[in-house]
Amino acid sequence: MPDIDELARRYLGSWNERDPATRRALVGELWADDARYIDPIAVAEGRDAIDDVLATAQRRFPGMSYRMSGRPDVHHQLARLAWELAPPGGPAVIIGLAVLVTGQGRLRRVYGFLDPVPARNPSPGATR
């Protein structure tokens, strides 16, 4: 069972994975069967919908990647992960915070906070 610190790092890495098959495999490894992702512009239930949210973010922000800002703050089955979305070597265009809830070594829920919140851009499979 991976420790929650490593799980948080792999979670953020899944947002940067550009190969659809590899990204989907990561989602399958990281997320529990009853997975749910919630942020100000997306609610995704299940692995397929979560993978769609990641793919949509990559399409909306081409050439940018997610990077940690600091170390994950971890206790019990929870992690608080501060991150930034930025072009390579450039300043952040979005600053975020993800609260990860785990169980049995997998992500069960992730609650995201964004600053600023981008305009909504619906994607198939995710509820808005």
Results as ranks from 00 to 15, higher is better:
D73R: 09
R128V: 10
L85T: 00
G63A: 06
Q58L: 03
A35W: 00
G105S: 15
L7E: 08
G70Q: 01
I41Q: 05
P62Y: 03
I38V: 15
Y111C: 09
L78A: 13
I38M: 12
V27F: 01
V74K: 04
P20E: 13
L7M: 15
E29H: 06
L78W: 08
W15A: 03
N16E: 13
D3A: 09
L85F: 05
P87C: 14
G46S: 10
L85P: 00
R128C: 12
R128T: 06
A55H: 07
P62H: 04
A98E: 11
E45T: 11
R9H: 10
A44T: 11
R109F: 05
V43M: 09
D52C: 15
H75N: 14
L100F: 03
D115C: 01
A119G: 03
D34Q: 07
R106I: 04
M1C: 13
P20I: 04
D48I: 05
P88H: 12
Q77C: 05
L54Q: 04
V93S: 08
A42F: 13
S69N: 14
N121M: 02
Q58Y: 01
R9Y: 05
V74N: 13
N16A: 02
V117W: 01
A82F: 12
R80D: 14
L7K: 14
G105I: 06
L85V: 00
R106K: 15
L81A: 10
P62A: 05
L107I: 15
P91L: 07
R80H: 13
